[in-house]
Amino acid sequence: MKLLTVIGKDRHGVLAELTSLLEEAGVCIKDFAGQTVGSNVVFSIHAEPYEEAFRCLGEAGYRIVSHDHLLVRLENHPGALAELSRRLADSAVDVRGLHFVSRDPEACIVALETPDARRAREILADQLVRDESDD
């Protein structure tokens, strides 16, 4: 799964502008988080089609960084995230980012960013969720 980190100046209406640009480009927002950092806003967006989101936001002057994430299924019980973290740490795989994408009573899906995706895929093969962008 590809996520976009979008950085822009914090100002009145920036969220409306950004989401309107995506709407006008026919982009569907699958997951969205944002925060203010100093005088900037930083948005993390999972959007489809990814290429169109990247193009339209870049043309509008936003700085964009693309990140590949693995989708990992965790059983919904206390300690599941700790177990995942230990599996990666025990194999010397660093985690750069992680966030929950979905949750139901039995399981949740997390998006995991690592500089060693190949190794993480091997370690977590039994928990990976296939995503249409993996093709």
Score class of each variant (00 low, 15 high):
L88D: 02
D90E: 15
R11Q: 02
A16M: 06
G61I: 03
A47M: 07
Y50K: 07
L98Q: 01
Q127I: 15
G8F: 00
D135C: 01
P78H: 10
Q127W: 13
R11M: 03
V14T: 12
A16D: 02
E24G: 06
D104K: 03
D94N: 14
R96E: 15
N76G: 03
L22N: 12
C28W: 08
V129F: 00
E23Y: 14
E23P: 03
G34A: 15
L70S: 03
H77I: 08
D10A: 14
D94I: 08
L21V: 01
F43R: 02
L128W: 08
H67Y: 09
I7F: 02
V129I: 06
E83W: 11
I7L: 14
R130K: 15
A89D: 11
C108L: 05
S44K: 14
R103V: 15
D90N: 12
R86I: 07
L4M: 04
D94P: 00
L81G: 10
R96N: 12
F43K: 05
A82V: 14
R130F: 01
A89Q: 14
C56K: 10
S91N: 13
A33R: 12
L21A: 15
H12S: 13
A111L: 03
G26P: 05
E52P: 13
E75V: 05
F32M: 05
A120D: 08
H69Q: 12
L4K: 04
R130H: 14
S102C: 06
E24H: 06
A25G: 00
E132I: 09
A60W: 01
P49Y: 02
C56P: 14
G26H: 07
N40D: 04
